[in-house]
Design a protein around this nucleic acid. Structure first.
Length: 327
DNA sequence: TATCCTACTATGGGATTCAT
DNA sequence: ATGAATCCCATAGTAGGATA
C-alpha cells in the first residue's frame, strides 16, 4: 500500500502561509511519519523523505534548505487561543532538531494540544497519497488537491471567494485574471485531466469542474467558487456499500448548513461577533463565534432556532449599510 | 417608463520583473 | 534558467444612475 497522509479536517482550515511546493512536501511527509505516534518524538531522515516524496531533481543543498525553511515556518506558525482570562500560544509541532550541513533529517514531535489532529482518527479526516501530492507542480495545486480530498466522498466543495483566497494563500496582488491563468487553469488541468506519468488512464479527480458564482452589483463580482467531481469510493470492502444519491445530497446539505453563517457578522451586547460555525445540539443550535474584546475571543452561543441567528445578522446588516434602498 | 451612459468586474493574450 | 509575481492592453457583459 502506498504511503498515505491522514489528518483531521480541521488542519485544512489552518492556512499555512508562504509554503513552497517542496516545503509542503516535507510538511506532509512529517505529518505522515508522526501519525498515530501519540506525542512521541520521530526522526524523518533523508532516505525516508526520498522514498516518500521523490526529490529526483533537487540538489541536496536545496533539500537541506527546504528542511530548514519548513522547520522555521513550523516554529513560527503560532496558533493563538484566547479565553476571557488567558491567552494561550501553541505551535503545531515542536521541531527539536534539523541539521546544519551535509545531511537532511528533521526531528520533531507533535504538540500535545494538536495530537488529536493525527492520532486515532475515526471520522472527518482527509487522506491522500503523499507521492501523488508531492508530484503536483505547484503549491496552489497542492492546496486545492487536499481541499478537494477533504470532500472526496461527496465530490462537492463550495467556498466563499474571500475564504478561498485565504486558504489557498493567494497574494492580494493577484487579480482575477492572474488567478485564472496562474492558479485555476493549471490546477484544473493537473487535477482533472488524464495523467501521463504515473496514472496513464485516470485523472486524479474524475469529471472535475469549477464554477464561479457571481453576485449582484456593478461588474457582478465573484462571491463564491464551487468544485464538483466524481466522488471516490473507499478501498475498504466493508465501507464500500455505495452511497445513494440521497445520502450524498444529505452530506452536501450538511456541509452547506455548516457553512451558511461563516464570516457573517452580528452585534450582541455591544460586541460585533463573526460567525464561524453552527452545530445542531439536541433541538438547539450552537453557534461558534469570534469577537474582539481586548483580544480575539472565541465563544459558543446557544440558540433555540436558526431564525434568531438570521435575525441578528439581518439587523446588523441593516444597521451597517452605507446606502441602500429596499427592493 | 424606456433608453442611454458610465462604472465596474471578468476574461484572455502577452510582456516584463523578480527571486532562487 | 526557471517559475512566480506583476503589469499592460483590449474586449465583453451588466448594474446603477442619469436622462429624456
Amino acid at each position: 500500500m502506498k504511503p498515505l497522509v491522514k489528518y483531521d479536517n480541521e488542519l485544512n482550515m489552518i492556512a499555512f502561509k508562504a509554503m513552497t511546493q517542496v516545503e509542503n512536501n516535507v510538511f506532509f511527509a512529517l505529518l505522515h511519519k508522526l501519525r498515530d505516534k501519540g506525542t512521541k518524538e520521530v526522526v524523518l531522515d533523508f532516505t525516508e523523505l526520498k522514498r516518500l516524496i521523490g526529490f529526483e531533481s533537487q540538489s541536496n543543498e536545496y533539500i537541506i534548505k527546504s528542511i530548514q525553511g519548513i522547520a522555521k515556518k513550523i516554529a513560527q506558525s503560532v496558533v493563538r487561543y484566547e479565553t476571557d482570562e488567558v491567552i494561550k500560544f501553541f505551535t503545531l509541532f515542536q521541531v527539536l532538531e534539523v541539521p546544519k550541513h551535509n545531511e537532511a533529517y528533521i526531528r520533531a514531535k507533535i504538540s500535545e494540544t494538536f495530537a488529536y489532529l493525527i492520532n486515532d482518527l475515526k471520522q472527518a479526516f482527509t487522506v491522500f497519497e503523499i507521492a501523488e501530492f508531492s508530484a503536483l507542480s505547484s503549491r496552489y495545486t497542492q492546496t486545492l488537491y487536499r481541499l478537494l480530498k477533504q470532500f472526496r466522498s461527496t465530490g462537492y466543495l463550495k467556498l466563499e471567494w474571500s475564504r478561498f483566497i485565504d486558504l489557498m494563500d493567494i497574494p492580494h496582488s493577484y487579480e482575477m485574471r492572474d488567478i485564472n491563468k496562474q492558479i485555476l487553469k493549471p490546477a484544473l488541468k493537473e487535477l482533472g485531466e488524464n495523467q501521463t506519468l504515473f496514472n496513464a488512464t485516470n485523472p486524479i479527480f474524475k469529471n472535475l469542474k469549477m464554477n464561479k458564482i457571481r453576485g449582484r452589483g456593478r461588474g457582478r463580482p465573484v462571491t463564491d467558487i464551487e468544485f464538483t467531481f466524481k466522488p471516490e469510493t473507499t478501498d475498504n470492502k466493508a465501507t464500500q456499500e455505495k452511497k445513494t444519491k440521497k445520502q450524498l445530497e444529505k452530506e452536501r446539505k450538511e456541509q452547506e448548513f455548516r457553512e451558511q453563517f461563516y464570516t457573517k457578522k452580528f452585534s450582541l451586547d455591544n460586541l460585533v461577533h463573526t460567525c464561524l460555525n453552527v452545530y445542531k445540539q439536541d433541538d438547539k443550535y450552537l453557534l461558534e463565534t469570534e469577537y474582539y474584546n481586548k483580544g480575539l475571543i472565541r465563544k459558543n452561543i446557544k440558540f433555540d432556532n436558526l431564525e434568531q441567528i438570521k435575525k441578528l445578522i439581518k439587523d446588523y446588516e441593516k444597521n451597517n449599510q452605507v446606502k441602500d434602498r429596499p427592493g
